[in-house]
Design a protein around this nucleic acid. Sequence first.
DNA 1: TATATTTGACCCAA
DNA 2: TTGGGTCAAATATA
Length: 306
Amino acid sequence: MEKKSSNGDWEKMKREINELMTEGRDYAHQFRSASSQETREHLAKKILESYHKSLTIMNYSGEQDSSHAHDGGGSPKSDDSDQEPLVITKSSKKSMPKWTRKVIITPGAGIDRTLEDGFSWRKYGQKDILGAKFPRGYFRCTYRKSQGCEATKHVQRSDENQMLFEISYRGKHSCSQAANVGSTIPAQNLEPNQTQEHENLDIVKESLDNYNHEAHLHHNLHYPMSSTPNLESNNPYMLQMRDHNMDFFGSTSFSSDLGTNINYNFPASGSASHSTSNSPSTIPLESPFDSYDPNHPYGGGFGGFY
DNA sequence: TATATTTGACCCAA
DNA sequence: TTGGGTCAAATATA
């Protein structure tokens, strides 16, 4: 929807992100075969730079989305954006604060952990969206009934990058979770795009730090680099950039933040119809990546989102 | 048995 | 009229 309004810009951003991600992937390849610590550090820096640039572009696009969301329906003032309407009524969902968060799946952490935001959500619907490959999931706060919490979120997997999820939040949590989660997970209160950029960068940095720590540890133990136990499994982003060959999720477990297992839905066919989801072939999988088509740059397997 | 998920049907804004 | 969002009955799971 939003894409159509600024198709040119969107296409340009897509190209730029694609180039940056390709660049990052190439660096990751070099990273794998690099023998010296110095080279690896240099490459790690380059990878981080590529990610940072990509995220900056994505976040720019996200900001545009947010501003549209705020302006949508003719919002009175744009400079009131940091003063969300606190009066939330059932009759005016438009007035509810709304923001979008983009999340890149962290394979090592599991899909649910990556998407986790500290709140408990209950799924109340799923629908195929016109022009989107993947269905959109509709979630509401678990405590909607008991505490009247009106917060909802929509989760949409990106067409271009299946590792990318766009999560749209609407409404603020009025339940008891808000107090508990708010102190540890600020995403609900901070500028979401900014927060997300930091989150993603932190993940990358953490991954690389883990690698450095591992490498250092093994180096000190006089283990040859080649015998480092599955380096990539400790570096989700190294894995992610592995030429799109997602053959590394064998041990990834997925349990939802509700304490139940998440089903990874695969529509019967790859194309989503505009009608309400009718995917009788819901296949509960341990890992949604098992069927990822490595021969397809972005598409292929993995029809549903989660 | 309680709770969560799935999914067809319905509502409503554009 | 269309399509996104929600409802609620049916079903699954713990």
